[in-house]
């Protein structure tokens, strides 16, 4: 056989992606004790913003039918559940959540994939990405996203304008950055009264029981 085998090479990581991964990990760690109450409105806002800015991609996603894709960043404490169909949504979930399909890989790689900066097939061939469940959903999602020029900095920059001044090298260029920074913003007014907030939430929980 005249084929030349190549050694596997891990995808290159930019410093930005490393920072974003750290920030996202921090954000999710902070968010966990609070449940979805604080993070969910942000995720909702992100999805509706993307839907408005990229109608073609969302039209393609809608064609995939009603399904749940578990996006599982192997280096973050939690995963994201993306619901596609007529009413797309994004939620933070446990990584054990059952879904139609699951994509697992480093958070930075997943972000690159989302923005179409990296070849998903190559990631899969090199085993840096694993896929479980409905392969057609994963391929369909990849194609729907790849057809658009997503750029998280641009897509979300307008949402969180003031944050662009925060001292990260590329502060709003990724979902991670957005998530991390949003926590600061959303929590900022409440940070001083965090204890109160938590107590109030606790009382609400008790009230439900």
């Amino acid at each position: 056989m005249d084929d030349r085998a190549n050694t596997r090479r891990p995808p290159e990581r930019t410093p930005e992606r490393t920072i974003e991964t750290v920030v996202a990990r921090l954000g999710l760690t902070l968010a966990q004790p609070l449940g979805g109450r604080l993070i969910q409105p942000v995720l909702d806002l992100m999805i509706s913003t993307l839907a408005r800015r990229h109608p073609d991609a969302f039209e393609r996603m809608a064609e995939l039918g009603e399904a749940d894709l578990l996006v599982d960043p192997s280096d973050l404490p939690a995963a994201f559940l993306l619901h596609v169909g007529q009413k797309p949504s994004l939620r933070v979930v446990e990584r054990s959540t059952v879904a139609t399909a699951r994509v697992r890989g480093a958070f930075a790689a997943l972000l690159d994939l989302f923005e179409g900066r990296i070849d998903g097939d190559a990631l899969f061939f090199s085993r840096d990405l694993t896929i479980e469940g409905d392969t057609e959903l994963v391929v369909g999602m990849r194609n729907a996203l790849d057809g658009e020029d997503f750029d998280i900095a641009e897509d979300f920059g307008s949402l969180f304008g003031p944050l662009a001044r925060l001292p990260l090298r590329r502060p709003l260029t990724s979902l991670a950055g957005v998530l991390g920074n949003l926590h600061e913003v959303l929590l900022a007014p409440a940070l001083r009264r965090l204890e109160q907030v938590e107590r109030r939430l606790g009382r609400l929980e008790e009230g439900k029981r």
């Binding site: 084929d3 190549n6 061939f125």
Partner: peptide, 15 residues
């Protein structure tokens, strides 16, 4: 001619 080896399926190519 080997510049594309990195993106080939299974990391291999053939004529």
């Amino acid at each position: 001619a080997t510049v594309l080896d990195r993106v080939t399926e299974g990391g291999k190519d053939t004529a």
